[in-house]
């Protein structure tokens, strides 16, 4: 049940690393209708977990009002080149995906 991977970019600089990610996902609100007038079921990312060298540094809880294919940027302290950043998400339909980055 894994969707497209999370795309992550980032670089360690002066001990901090700004991480940017893109998560391909439809982010349906559940209020839109299809061509036949039937509601398209809600389908959105609920939780995002960010890990730095395996340690959880941030979690995010999202509603359906985060844009389609969410962009998310955050900054991690005490980051050195070679550190591993992992970002994973779970949506309201139980699907999940993740992505990993080795900092330069």
């Amino acid at each position: 049940m894994s969707d497209k991977p999370v795309k992550i970019r980032g670089r360690a600089k002066n001990g901090v690393a700004e991480i940017k990610c893109l998560m391909p996902h439809p982010m349906e609100t559940g209020t839109r209708k299809d061509a036949d007038g039937a509601f398209i079921p809600a389908h959105y990312i609920e939780t995002v977990v960010c890990k730095h060298n395996g340690k959880e540094v941030m979690t995010a809880e999202w509603g359906a009002s985060v844009s389609k294919d969410p962009y998310f940027a955050f900054t991690v302290r005490n980051a050195q080149p070679g550190d591993i950043i992992e970002v994973s998400w779970t949506d309201n339909q139980g699907q999940s995906s993740s992505g990993e980055l080795v900092l330069k």
Partner: peptide, 18 residues
Amino acid sequence: SAIFNLSEHCVADVSTRI
């Protein structure tokens, strides 16, 4: 729209699109 739970290992600076 969104909640970000920060630990002390993160800078209080987040961006997204809503």
